[in-house]
Nucleic acid binder design. Structure first.
Lengths: 115, 115
DNA sequence: CAGGATCCTAAAAGATACTG
DNA sequence: CAGTATCTTTTAGGATCCTG
């Protein structure tokens, strides 16, 4: 059980396809993004959504998304800390891509093995 | 210099998103697919298209695509052998996804860093 | 020409334990 | 609660040499 992602480096970093791939790269990335598409989520909520996703990998995925400007994070003052991750307007641009991934996958599943 | 791909495993193998991700998974995958979208290509032609892609990795990528029924391969009789890889009708279903990857990447590049 | 066979390295992912 | 720190394992990718 895992979740697949786009994780390699780019031929030319300025290629739009590579930029888009970077956004959905890494195991669990699309599942985390799907959760965030539904609204802000805390670290724990994101973990609960994907029980077999470790804290380490979730942290890595979130750091990557934040670094790309696709997700922002706010922390509640006080204690214990509460976080709230949410998509930026840039991150929302990924919705059509996720939808197309779903549609294409459905189409592939509906096709016969080859030809 | 490389090319990024979706390369992880799936949470649930029957999830359409995972199926679509599997198709574009692995470094160089989208570039090889783009070449094939333009018509049948031989092994050498595919290598020439991506000079820094090794024979080993190209072989792996093609095997994966063939295994998924997205690409078919024919060999010329005689010697030396000539191969011709081409997209199956199933493989052609990936075109809208590649286009969406491009569009989304363009949109991301056009956005400001965050928010 | 079109790969196969090896070996090696570099990342990514996972498990576990611990901290502010 | 929200992570960080380590360590180990896994896997992808690259380099080189060889074959039908």
């Amino acid at each position: 059980m895992g979740h697949q992602t786009v994780t390699w480096d780019r031929p030319t970093a300025d290629c739009p396809v590579e930029v888009a791939l970077a956004a959905i790269s890494g195991r669990w990335a699309t599942l985390v993004l799907r959760d965030l598409m539904r609204g802000p989520r805390s670290f724990s909520q994101l973990r609960a959504g994907q029980p077999s996703l470790s804290a380490k990998v979730l942290t890595e995925r979130l750091e990557s998304l934040v670094a790309q400007g696709l997700v922002s994070c706010s922390r509640s003052p006080g204690f214990p800390v509460r976080t709230s991750y949410s998509l930026t307007s840039k991150g929302l641009l990924l919705r059509p891509l996720l939808e197309q991934l779903y549609r294409t996958g459905e189409a592939l599943l509906g096709e016969f093995p080859d030809h």
